[in-house]
Design a protein around this nucleic acid. Structure first.
Lengths: 259, 259
DNA sequence: GTTAGTGGTTCAATAAATGAACCGCGTTAA
DNA sequence: TTAACGCGGTTCATTTATTGAACCACTAAC
């Protein structure tokens, strides 16, 4: 049921680690017959969402994605302003930034601004869904986002990514309460080893978080000395982006972040 | 033939002037039964390419567009660098810029950087296909792009947009030859009244244009005095963007643009 | 020279898309 | 107050497009 959806789902298999995929490969990934996979790819190609490399014959995301993104920006403005603010912060802090937004009931990466100052940097795949228990953004969302996220914590199976990943709902709840006080969350290698994340909420008009802004730092540079800079940047971003999306900070929200 | 494609084609009806569309309306636009239109929209919505406004019940482009655009940027990098160069130029000239790329055999808008300095500015719809006979970008592409564009000029029906639009293939050929000498093209209200466009080619590795960079100026500000500034910006952009996309300028290309 | 992989095609079998009519609801206009 | 209209959304028999096993041609490895 839903050939269109099945065709679109093939797009899910493209990622930063695998930006080009061959026919047989993607058919296997999607569990489809080669013939149907090809027909789907052809349809996507005609629309421009897929592009075939004439040399290698393998497929990649096409230019229509950019067109649609521009249209999205018209329908729901804000992202472009956010990008600029994030870019400014990137230059200040020198680290990569991720903006995540709550869409439908999963936390998704909406914008990535990668640092240009270091060759060792954190790269996040924009196609990944952010696990709520393993990332700073996820924990932040649990603390300041809609209540249903916390409520369904027990029913969901929490994936373990590293040794530091929290999977016990009780422990997570404790942590979430702490974060609610501090205003910011951090994750020290709980999603990926060697990656420290710092995240703060972006609030909607009803003072419930609609997303998060996060700074991802490789462990080598995650020193004590740099924390104040990161935290103040995070705090201003939290305020600015909340304003940018037309939201409102709760009065109880801390006026600055303490380590 | 191709339900997936039919579903995707519904996305074509969203534009800057109509970013939100209701079910009946879009069904009429696409010439589909309401039931099938709804099923398609549901499929697109599940993937995230469409979003329904819970209040108005009408549909708009969804967040998945941004995700796909980010993936596209990974597969075919360069756009992000181009955006930065365009933004710098926008600050210099104070006008909106459009990057168009030749995709499959039509000229499409790939990036738009709108000026923040004037309230009267030119806005281009990212979903529009650039007519080759009516815009500075189009003429530029005819002059420096692949030969087949010029060859099919007779067989295509050339649409008239304003009184200034050229529709006679012979006249266009003359103009194209001029542009080939000058290195840049302009269109004075031939696509839309009151809009002056200046465009220069972006070359690929084989020294054939793969796209164009254009500056769009409202007639009020299209004075003689501002032309030198615009043309020098255009020339540097042409060089920089050609380099950015890994292309090469032809040796015969002018080293500066003369009015 | 064989094997295993690739991208792509064919066509009968079948499962999925389709659309006219319908429902319930809110607006508008007699 | 009533009736007509358009809206978003649903239903279900009809039909149409999708599906997949087998196939071809080609390349790379051994």
């Amino acid at each position: 049921m839903g050939t269109a959806l099945n065709a679109l789902k093939m797009l899910e298999y493209f990622s930063s680690s695998q930006p080009e995929i061959g026919l047989s490969h993607i058919a296997r990934l999607a569990g489809l017959n080669k013939a149907t996979a090809l027909r789907h790819l052809r349809a996507l190609e005609e629309f421009g969402l897929i592009e075939q490399n004439p040399q290698t014959k393998s497929y990649a995301i096409g230019p229509a994605a950019l067109r649609l993104a521009a249209l999205r920006e018209i329908a729901k403005p804000g992202l472009d302003g956010a990008r600029q603010k994030m870019q400014a912060a990137m230059h200040e802090v020198g680290e990569s930034l991720h903006l995540t937004l709550l869409e439908k009931d999963t936390l998704q990466t909406a914008l990535v601004v990668e640092t240009t100052q270091h060759s060792v940097r954190v790269s996040l795949d924009p196609s990944e869904i952010i696990p709520v228990n393993a990332t700073a953004s996820g924990l932040c969302m649990l603390s300041f986002g809609p209540a249903f996220l916390l409520e369904r914590l027990e029913s969901d199976t929490l994936t373990r990514f590293t040794a530091a990943t929290m999977t016990d709902p009780e422990i997570i709840r404790d942590r979430v309460a702490q974060i609610g006080q501090a205003g910011w969350a951090n994750s020290n290698g709980s999603f990926e080893d060697g990656v420290f994340g710092y995240a703060a909420p972006i609030f909607g008009i009803d003072q419930i978080a609609i997303g998060t802004i996060a700074i991802a730092v490789p462990e080598i540079r995650a020193t004590r000395a740099r924390q104040p800079l990161i935290l103040t940047s995070l705090h201003t971003l939290s305020k600015e982006l909340t304003a940018n999306f037309g939201g409102q900070m709760p009065e109880t929200f801390p006026t600055e972040f303490h380590p």
